[in-house]
């Protein structure tokens, strides 16, 4: 699962000009619908800034899914058993599928997939920074499933109730399909942790490297998050970054214990008063540096994406040319088989 982009991206178009009477009525209707938990659908009137926020968020989410294929696909050819190989192929395939669902949801807002891919390839839109970290060992596949997918699920489950219908529907499908992603990661790590000393060490090393970047996936602290408040008012976002991060930490601590692995935070302790686990400070300087493009894999991930697109161009053109010559039916009658 790719994480929901945290609310840190550059702002979309500013607020529209002062509304005329008709526009004000439309805005009132929109606000009432959102407040009443009615879903907004593609052809409904919506404020420009709402549309821009959604396009940015859904596109980043879609980009994260397809860039997120790379770190895991890195291990498909080396998966150490046929069972693990099948699981990993199916998982990476799901990520392509989820990217596809999300691009489709974004397209309902009037922007084409081609345009969105172009924004990704030219660096105008971001994907989740977590995928700019390398997968150095097989255990990283497990750590991504457990921690990265776990963080993403924590972020994404509330999005199934997002105010924009197509996005919410895509998220329902994605969350349903992803239920296996986190579990396979946890199971993989458990097998390593209970395996040979070398396997156990491999698992601990992966958790050491992925724990902090996973916490960063929830985005900057609430006080610094520029778009959170507005997204929450629009029911695009349901919980604050810190709230979700805390939920994730509370879930992970006992899970790590069962795994027999240590989370790399000496300050992690139960706070009786708050009823939550306290954790140590997050290195936001690292977060910002990776976001700026200084992560270990930023250039590599983007270049692979661009290359795949560039090298696929002649294939897409060939199919389009064939369709133009033989008709959009593809040379075979394709009517429904009867109702």
């Amino acid at each position: 699962m790719a994480p929901t982009p945290p609310a840190t991206a550059p702002a979309g178009p500013g607020p529209a000009a002062p509304p005329q009477d008709e526009a004000r009525q439309a805005l009132d209707r929109f606000d009432r619908a959102v407040a009443a938990e009615t879903r907004i659908e593609p052809r409904d009137w919506m404020p420009d800034a709402y549309r821009a926020t959604l396009v940015r968020q859904i596109a980043q989410h879609a980009h994260s899914e397809i860039i997120g294929m790379q770190p895991e696909a890195n291990w498909i050819t080396r998966a150490p058993s046929l069972r693990r190989k099948a699981i990993l192929i199916a998982k990476v395939q799901d990520e392509a599928g989820h990217g596809l669902y999300l691009y489709s949801a974004a397209e309902t807002l009037g922007v084409s997939r081609e345009e969105l891919l172009d924004r990704l390839h030219s660096g105008r839109q971001k994907y989740s920074s977590i995928f700019n970290y390398p997968t150095l060992t097989w255990a990283d596949v497990g750590a991504i499933g457990w921690l990265v997918d776990g963080a993403a699920i924590t972020n994404q489950v509330p999005l199934c109730r997002c105010s924009y219908g197509p996005y919410a529907r895509a998220m329902v499908r994605i969350c349903k399909e992803e239920s296996f992603h986190q579990r396979q990661g946890y199971e993989l790590l458990l097998a390593l942790s209970r395996g040979t000393p070398a396997q156990h060490a491999m698992a601990q090393d992966a958790v050491n490297r992925w724990w902090w970047p996973s916490l960063m996936m929830f985005g900057p602290p609430d006080a610094e998050s520029e778009h959170s408040a507005r997204s929450m008012a629009w029911n695009i976002k349901r919980h604050s970054n810190d709230e979700l991060r805390q939920r994730f930490v509370d879930i992970c601590v006992p899970q790590a214990e069962t795994l027999g692995l240590t989370l790399p935070d000496p300050e992690l302790r139960w706070n009786e008063e708050r009823g939550h686990w306290d954790h140590g400070p997050i290195d936001w300087e690292e977060f910002r540096a990776v976001l700026r493009g200084q992560g270990p894999c930023n250039a590599q991930r983007l270049e692979q994406r661009r290359r795949a697109h560039r090298e696929g161009a002649w294939v897409r053109e060939a199919a389009a040319a064939y369709a133009a010559r033989h008709g959009a039916g593809g040379g075979t009658p394709a009517g429904p088989e009867g109702r």
């Binding site: 790379q70 050819t77 192929i89 990476v92 395939q93 392509a96 691009y103 696929g312 294939v315 897409r316």
Partner: peptide, 22 residues
């Protein structure tokens, strides 16, 4: 075929090649 994952000419084709591989 699994080597194609992440390199296919279009997203739809990622799905198709992975299905055949599986």
């Amino acid at each position: 075929l699994a080597e194609w994952l992440g390199h296919a000419p279009e997203l739809e084709e990622e799905l198709a090649l992975a299905n055949i591989s599986l």
